[in-house]
Design a protein around this nucleic acid. Structure first.
Lengths: 117, 117
DNA sequence: CATCATACCTTGCCGTGAAAGGTATGGCAA
DNA sequence: TTGCCATACCTTTCACGGCAAGGTATGATG
């Protein structure tokens, strides 16, 4: 085990961004609102979270950007690269395993639990 | 800023500790291992995480401690107070809502999705 | 013309988790 | 005996991620 899963709770904003962009190319401001709406206001990530994530993701080659002007408004659209797809699968897998693990703790004595009479 | 809703991802170590202690009183070292075992090694929180959590929880009146000596070994057992039960329910609810929200983003277009016909 | 909504971005703070180190004792093996 | 590992407690230190807040610019609206 070369690398322990340190920071086990992080990367959720990244995960959400990647997942949304997978459906169609989107721009930052749009993502902020999409996350709010799709989560029924349960998750409200500000622009101060989204933009840095977007830039980091692009730097890593997980996203590619192209600038468009719509109605005189300049937008930076991001779309998923092949690297981004892998990154998404990776993060989604981690998240899934994490929540299952937590669930198995919350869910009481081990499923195949040893009942020491 | 005690009950701040920000930092939406935090409090999981706390949640796990409270949940485990609910079943029976436990001591720090034991909790570290219990979390590892119950999560099938998916979550490995060190003592540097657990002890501070324990102390904070006791300070807040969510846990009560009593020292025992077993086999010449001194252990500090923690058990859940009424306040702790409430805290647990609270955290568990938050966690549940959070994971559902994330799931509803990951799961694609809204469940009760508006099909703009 | 002023104000709001859109759209982008950065700086700086702070909480949290994690590593690492420190103390002490009991058990076991060399 | 000595030394080392496991048990058991605890603290200090650090890094990083999320977030508020602030800053720029432009189009629409009244």
């Amino acid at each position: 085990m070369a690398e322990n899963n340190s920071n086990f709770m992080s990367g959720v904003p990244e995960l959400l961004v990647l997942r949304l962009v997978r459906e169609k190319e989107m721009y930052g401001y749009e993502l902020v609102q999409a996350i709010r709406e799709r989560s029924n206001d349960a998750i409200a990530l500000g622009e101060g979270v989204i933009y840095p994530v977007l830039h980091a993701l692009e730097r890593d080659g997980a996203l590619s950007s192209n600038r468009k002007t719509v109605n005189g408004r300049s937008r930076v659209y991001y779309s998923l690269t092949a690297t981004g797809v892998r990154r998404l699968d990776d993060l989604a897998g981690n998240w899934s395993r994490l929540t299952e693990a937590i669930q198995s703790v919350l869910g009481g004595p081990a499923i195949g639990g040893v009942s020491h009479a």
